[in-house]
């Protein structure tokens, strides 16, 4: 969804799936992310170090995967939504250059603090379908009845 558009509470139902989004994280992107977050861990940029840790290549930063999932939620809810809570776990390793797919669904539609809200389950998986990053999000959505 274009960020300038809004997704309304009335247009969402429980069980609704988010359109999958496939991404590949490049080593350039990983370098930029380590720099902006001041993360000096060599496992994210030093291929020789990654090999010494038994990995075929450098490891994608867990928070970068979380950031991509939160952006996926933000894009789904549109400009009128407000992300209230976002939680993710890094369960499996993602390697630079791997194809990663983001998926999600609406699990609950309700009222929270007097506002229309939905809970989402979103996750990142690799090309073979292994779950790498499960996440949950609570978002406030605008309602047509209050606009």
């Amino acid at each position: 969804m274009n960020e300038a558009q809004s997704r309304y509470f009335e247009d969402v139902c429980e069980g609704m799936e988010l359109a999958p989004l496939t991404k590949t994280v490049t080593t350039t992107q990983m370098f930029l992310y380590s720099a902006i977050t001041r993360n000096p861990h060599r496992i994210h940029y030093d291929e020789k170090f990654a090999h010494s840790e038994g990995l075929p290549t450098v490891l994608v930063q867990g928070p970068l995967q979380g950031a991509q999932l939160s952006a996926y939620v933000s894009d789904w809810m549109g400009a009128g939504g407000f992300l209230k809570k976002f939680t993710y776990s890094n369960r499996g390793m993602a390697l630079a250059g791997q194809s990663l797919t983001l998926r999600g669904k609406v699990v609950k539609k309700y009222e929270l603090e007097g506002r229309p809200a939905v809970d989402l389950e979103v996750w990142e998986e690799n090309a073979t379908g292994d779950l790498l990053v499960p996440a949950t999000a609570t978002v406030f959505l605008p309602s047509r009845s209050t606009n």
Partner: peptide, 28 residues
């Protein structure tokens, strides 16, 4: 710089921090 690093081209992110920008703040 953060929007570029996470691959988010959304211009709205230039005025309001993307949600996980807190990661940048807490790492300073």
């Amino acid at each position: 710089a953060f929007a570029e690093a996470i691959g988010d081209p959304d211009p709205a992110c230039r005025e309001i921090a993307p949600p996980t920008f807190m990661k940048v703040l807490e790492g300073q």
